[in-house]
Design a protein around this nucleic acid. Structure first.
Lengths: 105, 105
DNA sequence: CATTTATGTAAGTCAAGACTTACCGTAAGT
DNA sequence: ACTTACGGTAAGTCTTGACTTACATAAATG
């Protein structure tokens, strides 16, 4: 059930851009904002959503807060996606087998 | 870039419920609708979104249309998520090493 | 202690989208 | 051919949420 929060967080292109920026290196809010086409408060709000989803963590560094990717959140999401993917593959294989049996009994 | 469509599609809980229903077995629209708390046209619209995202495919079966999971869409999504996850892990490891070096030089 | 720096929060605006009912098209059955 | 079954589409409503500006808070610095 926790994956729904992460999926909802990833639906926004700006948030994905933030994650891809953090992928390169951990950064404070201001550094992210100057690279993005939105205001700094908007970035802060997005980081809040990402944090609630368990996709990023923050560490105080003076007055700044350094944000970085949180492996755990991505691991949970990956697990959910993998089960769905596996079932999709087996269903696809089953259907292919069924089709082959029908075409050449 | 194509993963953004899939992520946007997965942000809705009803669409996730549809996918989990299709995970059990391929179904027509009506069969999905009776199990969900929304109307049939709503399910049809959701399936349109999922189809555009490459997460499901439809096959005509008389007047009905059988929807099933599309492995390719999930594979693309998985690939994107994996790169992000890998970078999150290495960043985490780097930070841990940095922290250890600082604590005990 | 005042100021600067860096950030989170509040309030308000506006567009995206999820849902409904009503309607239309198409394939199968009688 | 007419009817029935199944599903996509149109139009309209209403909520969600992404963004802005303005304000408040906390740490470092002179």
């Amino acid at each position: 059930m926790t994956y729904q929060l992460a999926l909802s967080a990833l639906s926004d292109p700006t948030r994905c851009a933030i994650l891809e920026a953090l992928r390169a290196e951990p950064q404070p809010v201001g550094a992210l904002a100057v690279r993005l086409p939105v205001s700094r408060p908007a970035v802060s709000q997005h980081l809040r959503v990402l944090s609630d989803a368990g996709l990023v963590t923050a560490e105080p560094r003076g007055t700044a807060r350094i944000y970085r990717l949180a492996p755990q959140g991505f691991a949970d999401l990956r697990a959910w996606l993998d089960t769905l993917w596996d079932d999709a593959l087996t269903a696809y294989a089953n259907e292919a087998a069924h089709r082959a049996r029908k075409t050449r009994p």
